[in-house]
Amino acid sequence: MSKSLAVALTMLILSACTTANTRVNKLDLVRPVAGTRVLVVRPSVRLTMLTVAGNREAKGDWSREGADNIAAALSRAISDRDLSPRLFDPNRVVSAQAIQVLKLNQAVGSSILDQEYGLTRLATKQGRFDWSLGEGAQVLGATYDADLALFITCRGTYSSDARKLAMVAMAAMGQALPPGHQTVFASLVDLHTGKVVWFTTALAGFDADIRHPEGADRLAAALIKVAPL
């Protein structure tokens, strides 16, 4: 049992492509018409370096570049779909009302992770995916001129060079040392109604190293492919 789990886990981690696990609000799922304004919220990215000993060391430069790369890649992907992207940095927001909406979005996102992907299920949801930020979300749309908002969060690790060497050396000894991995959460919020129309979690593939623009492009493509955009 534990062996098959380990194998499954290894397969998951080693799979080259980005794998996504999606939830959608089926009732409100309509593909946006051309020209729809999409607020691309600057992703919250926190990357760490996985050291030889298995510790995680914060990497501010990776995190910053990762956020830059994903935001740029998503904007390109959205433009390619004839939608109109707008870059937006939540850290620059001063309006107390807008800050509240952003905080609420975090809280709702956290609940979605708990209730849709975790072990518990809210009895009142009855399998429906009908999460919402409420009409207060309109303040974002009105202030930043948008119809939809795309939120991305990325947390993960990349192996240090020394760990990569150690992985090879350990493999030669018949031992496996897990590599770094990155998890992405994305959500799409309708800024007219406040409804979370789409939510996904994804494990970035080895070809989608967001520290580089090409990798971020691949990640963005994988996300957009499963998004109602």
């Binding site: 298995g54 995680r56 947390r155 031992q175 897990p178 991995h181």
Partner: peptide, 25 residues
């Protein structure tokens, strides 16, 4: 090596998505 807490934890994280991620998040 396999039992090294840090590494196994790192691996576990991808399984126990919801709980571990929430904390990190």
């Amino acid at each position: 090596v396999a039992a090294n807490a840090g590494s196994v934890q790192a691996a576990n994280d991808s399984v126990h998505t919801a709980s571990a991620i929430k904390e990190l998040l």
